[in-house]
Structures are given as C-alpha cells and as structure tokens.
C-alpha cells in the first residue's frame, strides 16, 4: 500500500560498569550522518534493560560497545535474553576492545560482526545498510 523509505533503526548501548563512551558516541554520530535512526541508550545498562529497549524501540540492530573485557560474560547473557524475548531477528554488532581469539566465540553466539579499533564509520554504515553518505570522522 505504501512505499517505505526506511532508515535502519539501531540501538547503541554500553553494558556493565565500563565508562568509556567516546567510541560509541562517535559511532552514534557517524551512523546518524549516514542516515540511520540511532537510539542511544547510554552507559551502565543492564542486559535486561538493553533487551527491553531493543524490543520497545523495534530496532533492527543492536550495537554493544565494550572496552572492559567483560564481553564473554555480558554478550552470552544479551544473546540469550534476545532469543527469549523473541528478538532473534535483531542483528547484534559489537565494538570496542575484543581479543582476536574471542571473535569466533562471539560469532558462534550469534553476533553478526565485531568491529575493533580502527574501524571506519562507512564500514559500519555499509554493514547496517545505511544509504546516506557516511563521512569518516
């Protein structure tokens, strides 16, 4: 009935006690400029709260930024909660400091992609299917 011009909706959050939010804020702004609807959920979120946010916001993507080293504790929990909430269709991105040997483990959990240091914004924008012109800041 109607044609949609639909911007990807992405929730960006930091979980646990990690307070380093420069990276996630740069990504938030970059993805906005690339034409995404970015919902920034902020610091110190609990996995339960993040999953409810993803549901209520009807997001297509969830981006989790972790620089604390707690990814192998927090991500299994988030992936499990997403499944239980019937949100399997939401694709999960992880950014931050993730050791190479953990990347395959996260992918086995269902994480779509891990973006480490040095990733450019256009790379992420392209991955989430944003159509705008991404600028690398």
């Amino acid at each position: 009935m109607t044609q949609q011009r639909r911007a990807p909706r992405i929730v960006l959050a930091k979980v646990g006690l990690d307070g380093h939010d420069r990276g996630v804020k740069v990504v938030a702004r970059g993805l906005r400029d690339a034409g995404c609807h970015v919902i920034y959920a902020g610091l110190w979120q609990q996995p339960e709260a993040v999953v409810q946010t993803v549901g209520d916001e009807d997001a297509d993507w969830l981006g989790i930024s972790i620089l604390s080293g707690a990814h192998m504790t927090l991500l299994p929990r988030i992936m499990d909660l997403l499944k239980r909430a019937g949100l399997d269709h939401v694709r999960v991105l992880v950014g931050g400091i993730i050791p190479d040997e953990d990347i395959p483990k996260l992918e086995v959990l269902g994480v779509a992609r891990v973006f480490g240091p040095g990733t450019s914004i256009p790379e992420i924008a392209e991955f989430v299917g944003a159509t705008g012109d991404a600028t690398d800041e």
């Binding site: 911007a7 609807h37 970015v38 959920a41 902020g42 609990q46 993040v50 944003a130």
Partner: peptide
C-alpha cells in the same frame, strides 16, 4: 541525510527494564 540521533532515553533510564514503562523514540 534522513538520519537521527535519538537520545532522550538516556535521561529517562532509571526505569530501564521495568515493564510498566514503555518508551519509543
């Protein structure tokens, strides 16, 4: 660009995870 940064949730997050609260940006 048609993009948007929706950040209002941050200031309402004390009830994140509470089913009696629903927020859509």
């Amino acid at each position: 660009t048609g993009g948007a940064l929706l950040g209002d949730r941050v200031r309402m997050s004390s009830h994140a995870g509470d089913e009696g609260v629903w927020i859509r940006s």
